[in-house]
Design a protein around this nucleic acid. Structure first.
Length: 575
RNA sequence: CGGGGAGUAGCUCAGCCCGGUAGAGCACUACGUUCGGGACGUAGGGGUCGCAGGUUCAAAUCCUGUCUCCCCGACCA
């Protein structure tokens, strides 16, 4: 393709609203343009990348026997009301009405639609298992779309769904997807982790997230180099402790200390000269209208995801200031575990196990207490693992130190069990003629997000550095001086040679100066570049340059083509 | 949803406090010089200053309302 015949609107300046490299570079390199908040046009270069990612996805899903179909984007409300998700998904759904005022939504995901197909069309265990997927635009009216295509309101997703007569069959397909996803992200040239995760609004029991490791990732990942344990920060387990309070020291008296205006652990720790680990942090929540006090060590944070799961709560909120005052009799900042009203359920985190002589809020404005003993001064209703695990904490499996990194969630696979089939009365007849609900799995993969993640993981200060497997073009031919007949002729010959060699080739035939062509080439990030200039040509040489390393080989033109071909073919294989 | 910030040329922004009829750089067009890392000169095109009201002889500038966009937060006591 000739640069002047396609459409690659590069820009020199960073867009004002782009915060992360992938967003900035996608706009600057002429891949992406915004239309509305979180809504984008995929320009020709990005379209090529998307097609390549989709192709890899299709190939790997074919290998595990998944079959492609396309479901509607517009979903009638009744379908979502059947599972209760019309309300659960709530404002996340883009809603609309038809001319008869009937409510519809633009599909944010397709469990309901596919389950409707299953209950109508799959009657017998003989038809199972089924493994279906589609690649389609999804709509989610995100609270805060940002980072370009990483959290957009309209985005491309591959979503797959499987139906099974028994758990063994579901387990097998789940493992197949686990493997297929791993191969997909490997082939895309990405460094990733499969981690245990929270299931969120989709539901179900077992699930894994596929995280591309990147500094700007929106999710935290805890992983253990020793045993391979890996989990999202919302899921990662703390170490459970058996013998609970017993601190192994002589308890001292519970003493009030004045801490006027000091409401945070840090402030009180500084005032009293005690480390944050010697504090009981008391957090008040409301769950389904009932108050819960959560006790964690002072240096810990409560994980609302873990707490919510522990309480089996449908709604969980921090208590507001009015509630805090009513429950503790003190201003916010002085809450403590002892003397709370009886209706408050007290959950102690394992991080406090075995600790004594603690500092806690006094439930009295301007005061904390020292010498606090769990077991003596408060008896928790239960012990639980509800704090957020951090890097350096012991691995729950093997005890080695966990490492914390950031990740971009590019895939998520779920064992849904019978959640949707039961809610929607989707059953099949088993061998004995009994109706049983389908067991289901669902498997999402963000196509456009994967592209953003690839850039996030592979760029430098000058621009994108595409992995060969998903690059919009594999090689770019750059004639440095379009006024020189010799240069143009040589470049044309190389361009033709590359195409004959089966390489996806871009020819920068713009009449621009060398400097701006180099700058754009770096920005757009085609993995290989063949530079044709007058000086080199006089010596009978063209220059093959690798974008990633900047390494250049000066070769005769036909050798340049075969050299590039060799390297690109090896790049396609992922060597 | 709460808080903050911003809407002026295609892009990035200045001008606003202190009203006097709109600017810079980049981009774009033409010509010339240049030509292996975002050149330079000359000439030129392009803006109802988000929108609607108001104050004023006069509003990008002051006031009111409204819309949109961006950032942060959504309570870790």
């Amino acid at each position: 393709m000739r640069w002047t015949r396609t459409f690659i609107p590069t820009v020199r300046e960073d867009p004002a609203d782009a915060e992360v490299p992938s967003h900035r570079l996608m706009v600057r390199a002429g891949l992406l343009r915004p239309l509305a908040r979180g809504v984008y046009t995929y320009l020709p270069l990005l379209q090529r990348v998307i097609l390549k990612v989709e192709r890899i996805v299709r190939e790997e899903l074919d290998r595990i026997g998944a079959v492609e179909l396309t479901m509607p984007i517009i979903h009638p409300a009744e379908l979502w009301q059947e599972t209760g998700r019309w309300d659960v998904y709530g404002p996340l759904m883009m809603r609309l009405e038809d001319r008869h005022d009937r409510p519809f939504a633009l599909g944010p995901t397709h469990e309901e639609v596919i389950t409707d197909i299953a209950r109508k069309e799959m009657r017998s265990y003989r038809q199972l298992p089924q493994n279906l997927y589609q690649i389609q635009t999804k709509f989610r009216d995100e609270i805060r779309p940002r980072f370009g295509v990483m959290r957009a309101r309209e985005f491309l997703m591959k979503d797959g769904y499987s139906f099974h007569a028994d758990q063994a069959s579901l387990d097998e397909t789940y493992r197949d997807y686990h493997g297929a996803y791993s191969r997909i992200f490997e082939r895309c040239g990405l460094e990733f982790r499969a981690v245990e995760a929270e299931s969120g609004a989709i539901g179900g029991a077992v699930n894994h997230e596929f995280m591309v490791l990147a500094e700007n990732g929106e999710s935290g990942v805890l992983s253990c180099d020793a045993c391979g344990y890996a989990a999202s920060d919302e899921r990662a387990e703390g170490v459970r402790v058996d013998h609970l309070p017993g601190a192994g020291h002589e308890p001292g008296p519970l003493t009030d200390v004045e801490t006027p205006g000091k409401t945070t652990v840090e402030e009180v720790a500084e005032l009293l000269g005690r480390p944050a680990t010697a504090f009981v942090k008391t957090l008040l929540f409301t769950t389904d209208g009932k108050p819960v006090a959560v006790l964690v060590r002072g240096d810990r944070e409560v994980s609302e995801a873990k707490l919510s799961r522990h309480l089996n709560a449908s709604r969980l909120e921090m208590a507001d200031a009015v509630t805090v005052r009513a429950l503790t009799g003190a201003e916010v900042g002085f809450a403590g575990p002892h003397g709370l009203p009886g209706e408050v359920r007290i959950v102690a985190d394992y991080s406090l196990a075995g600790r004594g002589d603690l500092v806690a809020g006094a439930n009295r404005t301007g005061f904390h207490v020292t010498g606090f003993e769990i077991g003596r001064d408060v008896e928790p209703d239960e012990w639980a693992d509800v704090s957020r695990v951090a890097g350096g904490d012991p691995c729950p499996r093997c005890g080695a130190r966990l490492r914390e990194s950031r990740g971009i969630e590019v895939g998520h696979i779920f064992d849904l069990g019978a959640k949707y089939s039961t809610a929607m009365d989707a059953t099949f007849l088993d061998e004995s003629g009994r109706a049983r609900p389908f067991l289901m799995g669902c498997y999402g993969l963000g196509i456009t997000r994967t592209v953003a993640a690839a850039i996030e993981q592979s760029h430098d200060e000058r621009g994108i550095v595409w992995p060969v497997a998903i690059a919009p073009y594999e090689v770019e031919v750059i004639p440095l001086n379009m006024d020189s007949a010799a240069v143009v002729e040589a470049a044309e010959r190389i361009y033709a040679g590359c195409r004959e060699a089966g390489l996806e080739t871009l020819l920068d035939d713009r009449p621009d100066r060398a400097g701006s062509k180099f700058a754009d080439a770096d920005l757009v990030g085609i993995p290989w570049r063949i530079v044709v200039g007058e000086k080199g040509l006089q010596a009978g040489r063209a220059e093959v340059v690798e974008r990633r390393t900047g390494r250049a080989e000066k070769l005769a033109p036909d050798q340049a083509v075969s050299f590039a071909r060799e390297r690109i073919e090896s790049g396609r294989r992922g060597d």
